[in-house]
Amino acid sequence: MIFLIILLIIVCLALGLFVLIQNPKGGGLATGGSGSNMFGVQRTGDVLEKGTWIFLTLIVVISLSITTIAKSGSTGSTDSKIQHLLDKTPTPSPINQAPAGQKPAPAPANQTKPAK
């Protein structure tokens, strides 16, 4: 499962890189750029667009597989110590309520200040 999480992080970084290096398609905030098409931007754009869709698909597949593995509970090492400590920790009682079988503590008596 750790491998899938690391793989997901790498794919997310690669997707971010692919999105950042793409040439803007115009409209919105991307207007006003130069119009020269010197290095064959259309062909590069196709490769980057396909790569973006591939990385997006990988992110969805890896995320779903991580969720499936986590829900099935096939990894016993992830919740060993922490879950054991959480199970042993008693739940705190709500304010002004005593635990079952005990009387609540008496309210403190009002103390008045001595006169000077």
Rank of each mutant, 00 (worst) to 15 (best):
A107E: 08
S34A: 08
V19N: 12
P114K: 15
K25P: 01
S77V: 02
P92D: 00
G73L: 05
C12Y: 08
I6E: 08
E49I: 09
I10Q: 04
I54N: 02
S77K: 09
P106E: 12
N110R: 13
K116M: 00
G51M: 13
G40N: 15
L7A: 15
H84G: 07
F55H: 09
T68E: 11
T112R: 15
L20M: 10
M38Y: 14
I82N: 11
F39L: 04
G32P: 13
I21N: 07
F39P: 06
P90S: 03
G28S: 09
V47T: 12
K116N: 06
P94K: 11
L48C: 03
L56E: 04
I59Y: 04
L20T: 12
L56V: 00
T67V: 14
A109D: 12
L86R: 15
L4K: 15
F3Y: 11
G76E: 05
T52H: 04
K81R: 12
K103G: 07
K50Y: 11
L85G: 01
N96M: 00
L20R: 15
T89E: 00
L64T: 05
I5N: 03
Q83R: 12
L56T: 09
A109N: 11
I2H: 12
K50I: 07
T89Q: 01
I54V: 14
A115W: 09
L4I: 15
A100W: 00
L58S: 06
H84Y: 10
G101V: 08
F3W: 06
K103F: 05
A30D: 13
A100I: 07
M1D: 10
S63A: 13
L48G: 02
T78F: 06
L29S: 14
T52D: 01
I82Y: 12
L17C: 06
L17N: 06
Q97L: 07
A107G: 01
L48K: 12
F3Q: 15
T57C: 04
Q97G: 00
T78D: 05
G32R: 13
A105Q: 09
S74H: 10
D46T: 14
I95L: 01
I82Q: 11
K113F: 08
T52N: 09
I66N: 01
L56Y: 08
I6D: 07
D87H: 14
G73I: 09
G32Q: 08
L86G: 12
F18T: 14
S77M: 02
L86H: 10
F3V: 05
G35C: 02
P114I: 10
I82G: 08
I59H: 02
N96F: 00
P108D: 00
P92S: 06
V60D: 00
K25H: 05
K103L: 04
T44V: 10
I6N: 11
L4Y: 13
S93E: 05
F39W: 03
I66Q: 04
I62G: 01
D87K: 15
P94S: 05
S80N: 12
I69F: 14
I2K: 13
T57Y: 06
H84F: 11
T57H: 04
Q102A: 05
I62A: 02
T78H: 02
